[in-house]
Design a protein around this nucleic acid. Sequence first.
DNA 1: TCCCTAGGTGTACGGCGTACACCTGACAGG
DNA 2: CCTGTCAGGTGTACGCCGTACACCTAGGGA
Lengths: 238, 238
Amino acid sequence: MVEQADTLPRTPLSRDRVLRAAVALADEAGIESLSMRNLAQDLGVVPMALYKHVANKDELLDGMIDVVVGEIGAPEPGVDWKRAIRGRVLSAREVLRRHPWAPLAIESRNMATPAILAYLDSMIGTFRAGGFSVDLTHHVMHAMGSRILGFSQELFDADRSAGRSGRADPAPPTALPPEIAARFPHVAEIAMAASHDDESVLGQGCDDQFEFEFALDLLLDGIERLHRHGWAPPRRPG
Amino acid sequence: MVEQADTLPRTPLSRDRVLRAAVALADEAGIESLSMRNLAQDLGVVPMALYKHVANKDELLDGMIDVVVGEIGAPEPGVDWKRAIRGRVLSAREVLRRHPWAPLAIESRNMATPAILAYLDSMIGTFRAGGFSVDLTHHVMHAMGSRILGFSQELFDADRSAGRSGRADPAPPTALPPEIAARFPHVAEIAMAASHDDESVLGQGCDDQFEFEFALDLLLDGIERLHRHGWAPPRRPG
DNA sequence: TCCCTAGGTGTACGGCGTACACCTGACAGG
DNA sequence: CCTGTCAGGTGTACGCCGTACACCTAGGGA
């Protein structure tokens, strides 16, 4: 109770302060406790005040996701692609362990936030720099799914977004906006290649079924190999 | 408008009718339109009537998941493990394409529903019958994640449930209840093996980090092999 | 006949997101 | 110094949500 008279000016709200408080609240009390009202109370402010800094709760969630994804460190330079990807994914996982609500939040949204695009772009860049073709990079990104973000989930699964607003969702498959394509060149490259004939944006122009089977067979082949080579568990500390 | 006078007795409600109507509503209008009120209206009944058949909305969701998972066909008998798993997963995926809301619903819940356990048990049984050790089966199930249910997600990820109710969640790691163990012997076997020293139930007694890295390395090794062998895209129709 | 019970009803409560009108204090231009 | 503007915090209110609780009602066994 070091708080002095209520006349002293509280640090003024800002989008950043709102987002950080929201992340903290979700971390501590669980995502289901994150209501505009609770968040406002934490900030010592009336609920409607938040709407001067975020458009609505969905945008708040997007902002929170960006805060979290922004915590994932940059890739260590000068290492081979495999080590780079591995290290980055494990670091992403570490971040998400601090924000257990984040995976579900990420999955339940469109996930085209700037921070996520930047992260994916850098991941794609790592594969490309390792000599992967655009096609193989594309499939491999699908195969890793959200594991690339430290958990597991199909990225860009058209079905998922359909699940949120009925099967209709006749939103036109708008092409990647130019300013996005400019900022995330590797994402753009893959989006281009995937839309080779008619379709466009990620998740629309690429063959979901193909991607799924590609990942599935990659896993099954790996599993078969382990099996045939007589895989045995490493000694666990005991 | 073939409906006759409002005196004629509507088909009486039943848990099954409620669940099926809920699935239909979620399929058609999206999961976010599934409210007890909307569902009741669809059934020509007052909202509170539903509570005579489901305890609450969470239980309703669990029931819906079971309906969906129950739609996944049985494995075709007499084929090798790889073909069996592959076929079953693709059939699961097909089912989930009809219920796009289901993956998120499954992930957001505890997913210990009977139908899911039965499905997993049968999958585990397929691996075991193919000669996989208990350990390898365990890791491989983790590696496939929810892809085994036709989409992607870590099964039994302790972090995920923690995300729902704060980090506390001091729910005791209750051992697999005997009646469950009896009904799902393969699940029980893996749970047993995973709790070799002290911990118990799935997701508690197994080393999350180990499982994650196992899956990650399985993927990376597979990817590396594709890369080294000069993978090229199959000819696409067009 | 009477009562029990399964199952549908009606009302009400507290919480949610947020539209909209309002206030207020800092600051720029005259 | 006055005054208009406007960013940003406030208060009220609306329509949703899940669901507790008391109630009614029809059918069926004792």
